[in-house]
Amino acid sequence: MLLIRCPYCQEERPEIEFSYAGEAHIARPLNPDDLSDESWAEYLFIRSNRRGLHYERWLHAHGCAQFFNALRDTVSDKFETTYKIGEARPQVKK
């Protein structure tokens, strides 16, 4: 069970309090009706499914109930960093 730092609670908390919420930084289009079927499908279904460092969303479901973003390594499972919704994504260290 991982320890995850919640950027709102400012604490490391056990994974069991959290749930995964998919890839991060995929905003809902502001005017969906203007999108072609292809672009809408892209938004709906296409994800990067990255091996390695991945920007993703988590929910501190049984804590402060806030969604937040994280940079996590999908190979080691470890979290590099977590940050609040609306904050710029941290750069991946090469």
């Binding site: 919420a21 905003a27 969303r57 929910l59 109930a65 806030q66 969604f67 919704i85 609306g86």
Partner: peptide
């Protein structure tokens, strides 16, 4: 509830 919270917090803050 979770889906509503998701939109409330992240799409329409």
């Amino acid at each position: 509830f979770r889906m509503m919270e998701d939109y409330r917090q992240t799409e329409w803050p």
